[in-house]
Deep mutational scan, measured.
Amino acid sequence: HHHHHGSGALAALHAEGPLAGLPVTRSDARVLIFNEWEERKKSDPWLRLDMSDKAIFRRYPHLR
């Protein structure tokens, strides 16, 4: 159930192989992290948004 927010940013994801479903670039990863943060913020208003490279690598090590 993907609803768009204002920016309408869509992340490019790997379609197949071992990385299927994972973001292709760091900016794609940022979109995913932001979208998930927006969702989680509803139940956790104090949740901090962390889109640093460090956060991205921790989450998606293949982007190193």
Rank of each mutant, 00 (worst) to 15 (best):
A11D: 03
S52E: 02
I33H: 01
L47I: 13
G8M: 10
V24Q: 07
K41P: 05
T25A: 07
L49F: 05
L47M: 09
E39K: 09
K42I: 09
P23D: 00
A15K: 15
K41M: 08
L22P: 01
I33M: 13
P61V: 03
S7Y: 13
D28K: 01
E38H: 15
I33S: 01
A15H: 11
H1F: 09
E39P: 02
S27Y: 15
S43G: 10
L22V: 03
R59W: 04
A12F: 12
P18L: 07
R48E: 10
P45V: 06
D44L: 06
H4D: 08
L10N: 12
W46F: 13
H4Y: 09
S27N: 14
L22N: 03
S27F: 15
P23Y: 00
D28V: 04
R48I: 13
S27H: 15
N35Q: 15
F34N: 03
E38Q: 15
P61F: 04
H1G: 12
H1K: 10
H4V: 10
P45K: 08
R58V: 11
R48H: 10
G17E: 04
R64G: 08
E16N: 10
A9L: 13
A12Y: 10
A29R: 00
H3L: 11
R59D: 03
K42S: 09
D53E: 09
L49S: 01
A9W: 13
K42E: 08
A29F: 00
D44Y: 11
D53W: 09
R64W: 10
L13V: 13
I33Y: 02
L19Q: 05
L47H: 11
E16T: 12
P18H: 07
L22R: 03
L22A: 03
T25I: 01
G21Q: 07
R64I: 13
L10S: 15
S52L: 01
H14G: 02
L10Q: 14
P23M: 01
I33P: 00
L13S: 04
Y60F: 14
P45G: 07
P61S: 03
H4S: 10
Y60N: 00
K41H: 11
I56A: 01
H4R: 10
R59G: 01
R30Q: 06
L10V: 14
A55E: 14
R40L: 14
G21C: 06
R59S: 06
R58G: 09
A29M: 00
G21P: 02
D44A: 06
G17V: 02
P61I: 02
A11L: 06
G6M: 15
A55V: 10
A11W: 03
E36I: 05
H4M: 12
Y60R: 00
R30T: 03
G6A: 13
V31L: 14
I56F: 01
R40H: 10
I33F: 05
R64S: 09
F34G: 02
S43I: 13
S43P: 04
R59Y: 05
L10R: 13
P61H: 02
L47V: 14
F57M: 10
D50H: 04
I56Q: 00
G8Y: 08
G6Y: 10
L22G: 01
L47P: 05
M51C: 09
A12I: 14
F57H: 07
G17S: 02
A12E: 14
G6C: 14
R30F: 05
P18N: 07
H1Y: 07
A55P: 02
H2I: 14
P45I: 06
P18D: 07
S7D: 13
L10I: 15
D28L: 01
L13R: 05
S7G: 13
A9P: 11
E38N: 15
I33K: 01
L47W: 12
G21S: 05
H2A: 09
D50K: 04
S43K: 11
R30L: 08
G6E: 13
S7N: 14
V31P: 01
I56V: 10
K54M: 11
A11K: 03
A20K: 15
I56N: 02
P61K: 04
S7F: 14
Y60E: 00
A29D: 00
G17L: 03
K42P: 06
A29S: 01
T25Y: 04
N35R: 15
H62R: 01
P45L: 06
R40S: 10
F34D: 01
M51A: 06
W46R: 11
R26M: 15
L32T: 04
K41R: 14
A15R: 10
A11E: 06
L63T: 01
P18Y: 05
L32Q: 05
W37Y: 09
A20W: 07
H5R: 14
R48Q: 12
E39Q: 12
A11N: 04
K54T: 12
K41T: 08
R30M: 13
R26Q: 07
A9K: 15
R30I: 10
D50R: 06
F57W: 06
H62C: 01
E39V: 11
L32S: 02
R58W: 09
F57S: 07
W37H: 05
F34W: 13
D50A: 04
H5L: 15
K41F: 07
D28T: 02
H5A: 11
G17D: 03
P18Q: 06
L22C: 06
A11P: 15
A12H: 14
S27T: 10
A55N: 10
S43D: 12
V31N: 06
P45F: 06
N35V: 12
P23V: 01
